[in-house]
Amino acid sequence: MSRQSKSVQVKICGLLTPETVKAAVEAGADYIGFNFYPRSPRYVTPQKAAELAALMPASVLKVALAVDADDATLDAIMAALDPDILQLHGDETSQRLVELKSRYGVTLMKAIPIAGPEDPIKSEIYRDSADLLLFDAKPPKSMKNALPGGNGLAFDWSLLAGQKPEIPWMLSGGLTVDNVREAIEATGAEAVDVSSGVEDAPGRKNPELIRKFIQAAKAVDV
């Protein structure tokens, strides 16, 4: 019996306007992310994120992105947005994830920055504490004002060869309409995440690029 193919899941991250949220929903996004990292050009307040999330059907999952946030910050995010997934994009330890799971009972996604062959292996420490992993490009130390993610950088996808974790994972980092098919085919990713790759400028999403990216990703069977 042949294996039944399925379409790739797509997460659009860092949305700031009703127009872009509606574009992502209409194009078939599976996840929409809201960025609560103050240094990011995609930063949104918990109240604003809640207003945007009200435009989403329950079938599209709400993701809250935080970077080494304290409990008070996360409490405010959880209270306003009630996200389906909490995406941790900083240096959070496995023990911190255990604490957050106990505190909020929410699905946890841990970002793993990738630059060299030793980096994918680091995901092992989150095997028992994370529900999802996100493999993203690690910015070089020489990059000025680098963010934890959303820098438009891709990593060498071959680094994931033979390093697939046991828990579900997404691919991120420098993905665009032009390379998302290649990225999926190279890594076997069943879910992809994009932010800067569908922008005209940092923080300014392009609705048409959102539509084209989702269409391109979902055209690839996995």
Rank of each mutant, 00 (worst) to 15 (best):
S2G: 09
Q4I: 14
Q4W: 07
K6R: 14
S7N: 11
Q9M: 06
Q9C: 10
I12K: 10
I12C: 11
C13S: 07
C13Y: 05
C13W: 00
L15M: 10
L16H: 02
E19H: 14
E19S: 08
E19W: 12
K22D: 00
A23G: 12
A23V: 05
A24W: 01
V25P: 05
E26C: 13
A27V: 08
G28D: 00
G28F: 04
Y31P: 09
Y31M: 11
I32R: 10
G33R: 03
N35T: 01
P38D: 06
R39W: 05
R39E: 15
Y43T: 13
Y43P: 11
V44P: 08
T45V: 02
T45C: 10
P46M: 13
Q47A: 14
Q47Y: 01
A58T: 14
A58L: 03
S59D: 04
V60H: 06
V60Q: 08
V60T: 14
A64D: 03
A64R: 05
A66S: 15
D70Y: 03
A72S: 14
D75N: 13
A79N: 11
L81Y: 09
P83C: 00
H89N: 13
E92Q: 08
Q95E: 14
R96E: 08
R96Q: 10
S102P: 04
G105N: 12
V106H: 10
T107V: 12
L108W: 00
A111D: 06
P113C: 00
I114H: 04
I114K: 04
P117L: 01
P117R: 12
D119T: 04
D119C: 04
P120S: 12
P120V: 04
E124Y: 12
I125F: 04
I125C: 09
R127K: 13
S129I: 10
A130S: 11
D131C: 13
D131G: 13
L132W: 15
L133H: 02
A137S: 14
P139T: 04
P140E: 04
M143R: 15
N145G: 13
L147C: 08
G149T: 08
G150N: 07
G150I: 03
L153E: 03
A154V: 02
F155Q: 07
L159E: 08
L160N: 07
A161P: 10
G162F: 09
G162N: 09
K164H: 01
P165T: 02
E166T: 11
E166G: 15
I167W: 02
P168E: 09
P168M: 09
S172W: 01
G174Q: 09
G174R: 03
T176Y: 01
D178P: 10
V180S: 08
R181N: 12
A183G: 12
E185M: 14
E185Q: 15
A186S: 15
T187L: 02
T187Q: 03
T187V: 06
G188Q: 06
G188A: 09
G188N: 05
E190F: 00
A191H: 02
V192C: 01
D193F: 00
V194F: 04
S195D: 06
S195V: 11
V198N: 09
V198I: 13
N206P: 08
E208R: 11
I210D: 05
R211H: 01
I214C: 09
I214D: 03
Q215P: 00
A216G: 00
A217S: 03
K218Q: 10
A219M: 05
V220W: 02
D221S: 15
D221T: 02
